[in-house]
């Protein structure tokens, strides 16, 4: 599902977003998505004990169903698979659980196929 090489692989974009987020807080990243494409987003923070959240909303602010991919390494990295039902502008909500010990730098990258 997360192949970045070979037939049917996702193509990783070189552009990315980053910033800082406080424990218990969230931010929104805007992105144009195209129907028929699949998108994979990865969110990560440096603290392996921290937990991040990743969700998708449409232009009207309604949550969109996505598939989450978690990793055995910890909850400080999370992936989200998106298959948009309509082309449009979406909002990716990134969040840091309130249990995090401190503000975290975050980075969000994505791939498409």
């Amino acid at each position: 599902m997360i192949d970045l090489e070979g037939p049917g692989a996702f193509t990783l974009r070189e552009s990315w977003w980053h910033g800082q987020v406080q424990p218990g807080k969230a931010k929104l990243v805007q992105q144009q998505l195209f129907k028929q494409n699949s998108y994979l987003f990865w969110l990560a923070v440096p603290d392996p004990e921290a937990q991040v959240y990743l969700d998708l909303y449409d232009e009207s602010g309604q949550i969109v169903e996505t598939e989450k991919i978690t990793y055995s390494e910890g909850k400080y990295v999370l992936s989200m698979l998106v298959q948009p039902q309509a082309t449009g502008f979406y909002y990716i909500r990134i969040g840091l659980d309130k249990s995090a010990k401190s503000q975290q730098d975050w980075a969000l990258i994505y791939a498409y196929k």
Binding site: I63, T70, Y71, L81, R93, G95
Partner: peptide, 13 residues
Amino acid sequence: TVLATGASQGQDA
């Protein structure tokens, strides 16, 4: 290592 996949939304979403 992928631990789990599934349709879901964040705990606080």
